[in-house]
Every structure is written in structure tokens, then in C-alpha cells.
């Protein structure tokens, strides 16, 4: 008489997605409150402040189904750190939400095996990179729209580019590497296989949360964001007739056109850092990481 009823499902059900969403939201929310409390040290436009603990949402998208985790985290930031703390920026929040959610989602899709530090490192940088590139694009766009005949105001376009470049590098180093990549590499493998039973589901495996289409989509997104970024900056420079020559012409001669690609060079710096980090980790993790076989 007893007839076993099959209830096994491959995909996460709605409640489990809700669980991931709520978890990601709560954690990143509280993390944002903490970063608000942490004092800032600023040196002119270069701020030595922790603008966000990127490793938390990154860990969430690496460990769980990326979409609910990617949507939950920026919402947590908006609710906890902005809305409840009386610092809600309205539309500005929406723009941040889209940028960050997209960045996280793509980063999550890039990770195949949460135990692979290499993948975590790359995905972390790509994640923070996309977020920062998009916000740079939006910032420049705002100035472009907000100041009438911007090209006619001497100095400002160059100034905007330089400041955005500094902030980009600054964010990539602090949020991307110090509070993104490094803690994520420490945290994710520790949590993998341990947090899932606490929440009542099986650990993530290669196939569980992503389809081939999504992966292709994610890669496409990475490239398109990069091209938008580069395209926007070059277009901006062309339109504005940006001429850094006014300022120290010898400098330009020495370094040529590359210097103008502020954003691009920033990306390169980060890339170099990533390669260094990965090669270092490859050495340290090559000894005994059984789950690597899964690749």
C-alpha cells in the first residue's frame, strides 16, 4: 500500500529561490551598514574608503543560483543602507541596482566550480569590473547630458575623465581586490558544501544553476559591457576634442595615446593583478584539491 511519491526536483523551487534572495539581501544589507560606519581616509579625490564589501554578494552568486542572489544583494543595499538610513537616492538607486545586479549575475554565471580559486578570482574581478565600468559610463553620460555644450567648456571633459579614471582604479583595487577577490577566495571554498545543508538543499554543481545559453549570454555581456565602456570613452574624447596636450605636453609624447585610455589602462592594471594572484594561488592550491576533477 505505501506508495512513494516522487518529489525530487532538479531546479530550485520558488521557496528556495526566495531563501537565497532573502539571505543575499540581509547579508549585503548589513555589510553596507558596516561599511557606512567605517571611517574614510581621503587624499584629495583618492578615497581610501571601503565603499562596499563586494565579497559578500560575490560569494552568494558563486555558491547559489546566481539570479536570486544577484537581485537580492543590491536590494539589500538600497533597503538597509539607503532607505532605512535616510539616504535614499531615488532614481540613482535604480541605476545602481541594475548595474550591480547585472554585474553579479554575470559573475555568478562565470563560476563553474566554487572550489576553483582561479574561477572565483576571475569572476570577482569581472563582477566588480562590470559594475564599475557601467557606473563610469553612466557618470560620464550624466555630465555629458547635464552640461550644455560640454565640449565648449575647457578643461572639464578632461577633468571628468581623469577623476573617473582615478575612482575606477581606486574601486577596483579596494572593492574589487582587497574587499572582493581576496575575501571571496577565502570564503567561498569554506562555505561551499557547508552552508547548503543549513539551508536545506544540495550544494551547487556545474549543471545545477546555469544553462549553456546563459553562459554564452554571460560571456557576451562581459564583452559588450567592455566595448560599451571603451566605446563611450573614446566617443566622449572624440566629441569633446579632449586634448590633454595643454597639460604637460612632454608627458603625452612620452606615453603616447595610451594615456588617454584611462579606463582601459585601469582594466589592464587589474588584469595584471589578477594574473599575479592566480599564478600565486595555482601554486598554493595545486596540492590536493579533489573537487578540481569536476572541471
Amino acid at each position: 500500500m505505501p506508495n512513494p511519491i516522487p518529489h525530487q526536483k532538479k531546479e530550485l523551487n520558488q521557496s528556495q529561490q526566495l531563501m537565497i534572495f532573502v539571505l543575499s539581501m540581509s547579508l549585503f544589507g548589513i555589510a553596507n551598514i558596516i561599511t557606512e560606519i567605517v571611517p574614510e581616509f581621503s587624499f584629495g579625490p583618492v578615497e581610501f574608503s571601503v565603499s562596499y564589501f563586494a565579497f559578500i554578494p560575490l560569494a552568494m552568486v558563486f555558491l547559489f543560483s546566481p539570479l536570486p542572489a544577484a537581485l537580492g544583494a543590491p536590494l539589500g543595499e538600497i533597503i538597509f543602507a539607503d532607505l532605512l538610513m535616510g539616504d535614499f537616492g531615488g532614481i540613482g538607486e535604480l541605476e545602481g541596482f541594475i548595474e550591480f545586479a547585472l554585474a553579479l549575475y554575470v559573475a555568478g554565471l562565470l563560476v563553474k566550480n566554487p572550489n576553483s580559486r582561479k574561477q572565483i578570482a576571475i569572476a570577482s574581478l569581472v563582477g566588480v569590473g562590470i559594475d564599475q565600468m557601467l557606473s563610469t559610463v553612466v557618470d560620464i553620460g550624466k555630465v555629458w547630458v547635464g552640461i550644455e555644450e560640454l565640449e565648449a567648456v575647457p578643461g572639464v571633459p578632461e577633468s571628468i575623465l581623469v577623476l573617473e579614471g582615478i575612482s575606477f582604479v581606486n574601486e577596483m583595487v579596494i572593492s574589487g581586490v582587497l574587499f572582493g577577490l581576496i575575501p571571496a577566495m577565502w570564503l567561498v571554498p569554506r562555505l561551499h558544501g557547508k552552508i547548503e545543508p543549513l539551508m536545506g538543499f544540495a550544494p551547487r554543481e556545474d549543471v545545477s544553476f546555469r544553462s549553456a545559453k546563459e553562459i554564452v549570454g554571460a560571456r557576451f555581456l562581459v564583452f559588450s559591457v567592455f566595448f560599451i565602456f571603451v566605446g563611450m570613452i573614446s566617443e566622449f574624447m572624440a566629441e569633446m576634442d579632449v586634448n590633454f596636450a595643454v597639460w604637460q605636453p612632454e608627458f603625452i609624447e612620452q606615453f603616447g595615446q595610451q594615456f588617454l585610455w584611462v579606463g582601459v589602462s585601469a582594466a589592464i592594471i587589474v588584469l595584471i593583478l589578477a594574473v599575479m594572484g592566480i599564478s600565486y594561488l595555482k601554486k598554493s592550491s595545486s596540492s590536493g584539491n579533489p573537487s578540481r576533477k569536476a572541471q
Partner: peptide, 20 residues
Amino acid sequence: PHYYNGELAGVIRINGEAAQ
């Protein structure tokens, strides 16, 4: 069995209705 997906056998009746 609706929230926790596990192996369930047997009959559960709540208020006369089969829970499954």
C-alpha cells in the same frame, strides 16, 4: 512533503483530507 522534497511513503490525513 510539499516544502521538503524527500521520500515520503504512507498516508497523511489532515481534517479528513489527504495531505499529499
